[in-house]
Design a protein around this nucleic acid. Structure first.
Lengths: 209, 209
DNA sequence: TACGCGTTGACACTCAGTGCCAGTGAGGGC
DNA sequence: GCCCTCACTGGCACTGAGTGTCAACGCGTA
């Protein structure tokens, strides 16, 4: 989770704060350049020159050029499974999933100045979109596993959990897309609620056993 | 669409047939090697050596190493929008979308010996999955546009068409995943029908205006 | 035969990403 | 104070993906 570099938690050791500093500097430089000139037109050498570290160090913090951008969004979804696990057991899947998916979106809305630019960059850059969806596939698997566990289904590859998780993320994506298209003029959480109003009957369908 | 290299349509010019031959040879060599040893362990130099062409020629046929594998599946979805457009106008979205999405899946089932290996390779290789989902995002946009057109919605970025298209593709993906997990033991078209039985109420929801 | 056109292979080049190693600085034990 | 460990760093060399360029080749046509 990006934290703007100003949040010096005293419980962090010096080494941890140094790492965070470098990571933030790299992220800042990268987003600046990439948003300005587009993903393909910027080389890693330029990013590290701006950040003032070596190229080798870049790859100690990020797995790839795409990773700098995608991490920003992807980290938001990391806790989805935990959020879903914390929902009360009696809650219907549509409500539990909505709350799980709502968290990262609310985080986006809270940091909209920066998050919006990142989302727009990702959505209009095929290479970034691919990496993002690759990450999202992991969220989907996590959600599906947790959902299967909640419903007491054997955790083998049943159809319903994957389908429900995929549907919830389709709502997430549609929301993100619309938020991006509207340049942030609409409230993403409200959009998500509307999307879930549509898909809820599917998520709670008795067909899903 | 892959055609096994034995289908020499007489109406093709010699040059076209030569191109097809090279493309098939490259695809064949690549799938062979990649399925055997994994995506990362095979270099393009090895692929072109097996196929008997130069490295430069490879990139005249495929945009990237991932492309050889992903094309195989991705080409199946190319006609989705056209298939959707051909459905009768009075048909509810759930039925029209089911038929559109069913076509590529039926093609998979028809060439299951080869298609299954490709799908399994894609689903368990993150880089390939990313590229595939990147392509699929284009299907989604195409379906959404066609759906908006069908429903007479202004083709601006309404929420429902994107959501419906994304949900239909979530069903497609869940089906593909289960088909892959079961090593082809289940009929993908039957699985897709079951998935659509679950999501149909969402696709036809009056909430979608 | 000669010309135009598309395909090919070879070469050089940029850039992403990795392995390796030596230097450095902070923190802890003596 | 001194030394030792350990994490981080930069530099370097290397592999592999992907691209631009050009000369050569083969086919169809005038």
């Amino acid at each position: 989770m990006y934290d703007d570099g100003v949040n010096h938690r005293p419980e962090m050791t010096l080494a941890e704060r140094k790492r965070r500093l470098v990571s933030d500097e790299l992220t800042e430089s990268a987003l600046q350049l990439l948003a300005l000139r587009g993903f393909d037109a910027v080389t890693i050498d330029e990013i590290v020159a701006t950040a003032g570290v070596s190229r080798r160090t870049f790859f100690r913090y990020f797995a790839s050029k795409e990773d700098v951008v995608v991490r920003f969004l992807a980290d938001m979804g990391a806790g989805m499974r935990a959020d879903l696990a914390e929902r009360p057991v009696g809650e219907p899947p549509s409500v539990a999933l909505l709350h799980a998916v709502r968290v990262p979106l609310a985080t986006c809305a809270a940091h909209s100045e920066r998050a919006l630019r990142v989302v727009q960059l990702i959505l209009r850059t095929p290479a970034l979109l691919g990496r993002f969806l690759e990450r999202q596939a992991q969220w989907r698997d996590d959600l599906a596993r947790e959902l299967a566990h909640r419903l007491g289904l054997g955790h083998e590859s049943a159809l319903y959990p994957r389908l429900a998780a995929g549907t919830a993320l389709a709502a997430f994506d549609a929301t993100l897309q619309r938020w991006s298209d509207a340049d942030g003029a609409e409230d993403p959480v409200a959009l998500l609620d509307r999307a879930f109003a549509v898909i809820a009957p599917a998520l709670d369908s008795p067909e899903g056993r």
